[in-house]
């Protein structure tokens, strides 16, 4: 019997104008990416605040991926740059808490970059798989855990 492989649960916040469209394009192009991601569409990654990432981890996510437009290509000019700073701030906070900051990552994807998006997801899933299940989830996360 094969040992059970850990399948991480990753929340992916995808910008409507780029990464979400590229995920759509990946579907049209029949490009496969792991089913470990739960994509949440946001109007812009600049809409995301630290508490979104924190709540995702608190509720048991093994990893959080933030996918915004290429730098300089944000539909709202600099929303993705705001998101980058917030992601960095949250990484520092995760370290303070005692969690691996690698569980949170931001990538920059344009709407035409279906293959790079799939690669980014594959890489994120592998990174988190190596880190193992979220210590928060292991220690009995909140009741909403199963909804992820």
């Amino acid at each position: 019997m094969k040992p059970e492989v850990f399948e991480p649960k990753i929340v992916a916040f995808c910008c409507h104008y780029c990464a979400y469209s590229s995920a759509d394009l990946a579907g049209s192009m029949r490009i496969q990416y792991p089913p470990n991601v739960r994509i949440i569409r946001t109007p812009c990654t600049g809409r995301l605040e630290t508490e979104y990432f924190m709540k995702a981890f608190e509720k048991g996510a093994d990893g959080v991926l933030v996918a915004g437009c290429l730098e300089g290509g944000c539909h709202f000019v600099e929303g993705n740059l705001c998101a980058k700073r917030r992601v960095n701030y949250t990484k520092d906070m995760l370290e303070e808490i005692g969690m691996e900051k690698e569980r949170l990552r931001m990538v920059n994807i344009s709407a035409a970059m279906a293959r790079p998006l799939a690669d980014a997801i594959i890489d994120m899933v592998e990174t988190v798989r190596k880190l193992g299940p979220s210590p928060i989830r292991q220690k009995g996360s909140l009741k909403q855990e199963n909804r992820l």
Partner: peptide, 9 residues
């Protein structure tokens, strides 16, 4: 959130 997670860890 941070305190809840840190305490749990």
């Amino acid at each position: 959130s941070a305190l809840r997670m840190a305490a749990k860890l």
